[in-house]
Each structure stands twice: as C-alpha cells, then as structure tokens.
Amino acid sequence: MINVNGTLIENAPFISSENRGYKYGDALFETIKVVYGKILFWEDHYFRLMSSMRIMRMEIPMNFTMEFLEEELLKTINVNGLAKSSVRVRLNVDRGEGGKYLPKEKTINYSIIVEKADSDFYTLPKTAEYTVDLYKDYFVAPGLLSTLKTNNKAINVLGSIYAEENELDNCLVLNTNKNVVEALNGNLFLVVGEHIKTPPIDDGCLKGIMRKQIIEVIVNSGDYVVEETSISPFELQKADELFITNVIVGIQPILRYRKKEFNTKISEDILKRLNTKLRLS
C-alpha cells in the first residue's frame, strides 16, 4: 500500500503525466530508516525537508508538522504489516500539477512508499571486495541546490550505469573544481591515521543525515580529529581508509580504489560507536 496525500492505495500508478515531479524534477525526497516503529534521526530528516522546501520556494502546508508526518509514515508502515520490521521509507514531496517551468498552483503533494530493509542495526557489509573509481563524464556544480535531495539525479543515474558497465560497486563524483565530493549513493570520508576528512557542504555534496551523525560520533570520540575540507583525487590512494555513509547502510567501507586496497579498522570502530549512540537514544 502507498500513502498518497494521506490516502492509502494499492501499489499502482498514482501520478499523472502532468505531475511536476515527473515533468521537471520539481520534487524533494527523504530516504528514511525505521526500525520496529522507531524512525531513526527523524528530527534531522524533518528539518532538512522543511529547509529544502523553503529553498525550493515550496509553500509548506500548515499541517506539515513533525507529528503529522511521523504519524503518516507509521500509518503506512503498519498497513503494510511492517511494524515489527526494519523498513526503508521514501517520503516524496512535489508541487502537484500544472504550469510549464512556472507553477500554476501552490499545491503540495506527498507520497510515502515503504519496503522491508535488510538489517535492523548497522553492520559492516560482508563483501570480499567493494571497488570504486572516479566518475568523470559529468561534474557537480557547487551550490545550494546540489546539497538538496531532489528528484534531479541524472549524474547519479548515469554514474550507476557507468559503474555497472565497468564492474564497479560504486563511483566517486567530482565537482567542477575537480575535487571529490561524494559517492553516487552517500557521503565520503577519508582516513589517514587518526585524521578523518569529509568534503564540505560548500563543495556541493549532499547535506547527508548520516554524514551529520558520523561527524558527531567522531567529534565526541576523543580519539579522532575530523575536518570538513576539500579532497583532491590525488589523496585517495594515500588514504588508510575510505568509507561511504547513508542512513540505510550506515557505513560502507571502500576496499579498493584502482590499485590501492584499504583496511576497515577505523570504520569498524566508528560504526560501533554509532550503534552505541543509537541504543542510548
């Protein structure tokens, strides 16, 4: 069952050819993990969505409170029989129908789609290899829009096709200044000794929810130093570790970049600290 503006419908087409999210990518979304009815990092997701809607000049409905949207998420999970499961949720917000580039109305639609997630807590994926390379066909233009989770994901789609064609597990994306900004499906962290770097938001990376959590874990650890600073492609092969973060997987270590192989010692430690934080929250 899909939740469309509060109405639960069967899994069937529910948007028209005039939907602005479909026609122009005039839409935002949040990918959320829910474990046994607990929405992880819900406050962060909610405020990112509200901030993104303001940046996109969407008129936020009066009923779009944190409590209202939380209730809608849980309602959709429950009706799909997933209340006692780990769930991946996509909350999509668009500007309705009508108009060309200029919207005719100020309507806001939302939809919620849920599916069962693979695991309850965050664990390091058990893979023999996780190989990445740079995706250099197209570049991210640094700016506020590139930090939003919008439906405009052409680079991510083309990069994913490139990765499959070249037998890669993922690709790292560059901005127009030729700095590494993120992976196709998450933020990037680089480890050298006890020093950990991640690209700054100003470089054009997604303002990731898990990125924020990992930075807080590192700062509170007392064992590592984290720095938000630009990362050159030349630094990748000099790193001790590279890892990708998103709210569904948590941490995905990169095991190989070109001829360089990486360990996962720091990744494992940070992941343990993250899970401890979740248990205490």
Rank of each mutant, 00 (worst) to 15 (best):
S85H: 14
K100V: 02
I112K: 05
I113Y: 06
A83H: 05
V114T: 12
E97Q: 13
N109K: 09
K106A: 00
T107D: 13
R88Y: 15
S111H: 12
R88L: 14
Y101I: 09
N109C: 07
V93N: 09
K84I: 03
G96R: 10
S86D: 04
G96N: 08
Y110N: 00
G96K: 08
T107I: 14
R88T: 12
G99H: 09
G96W: 09
V114K: 02
I112L: 04
K106V: 02
Y110G: 07
Y101F: 15
R95V: 04
L91G: 01
K106E: 09
I112H: 04
K104I: 12
S111Q: 07
S86K: 01
K104C: 10
L91P: 01
K104G: 09
G99D: 04
R95I: 05
I108W: 06
E105Y: 11
S85K: 15
T107L: 11
N109Y: 11
E97H: 10
E97P: 08
S85A: 13
Y110S: 04
T107G: 00
I108C: 05
E97L: 12
Y101E: 05
I108S: 01
I113A: 14
K106S: 08
Y110Q: 02
R95W: 08
T107Q: 03
E97D: 14
Y110P: 01
K84R: 13
L91I: 02
L91Q: 06
I108M: 11
V93W: 03
K84H: 13
I113C: 12
E105F: 11
I112A: 02
V89H: 00
Y101H: 14
Y110F: 10
V93E: 07
N109D: 11
G98F: 07
G96T: 09
S86R: 00
V114F: 03
N92M: 14
V87W: 03
I113S: 15
N92D: 06
Y110M: 06
A83C: 01
N92L: 15
D94K: 02
G99M: 05
V89Q: 09
S111L: 09
Y110T: 00
S86C: 07
I113K: 12
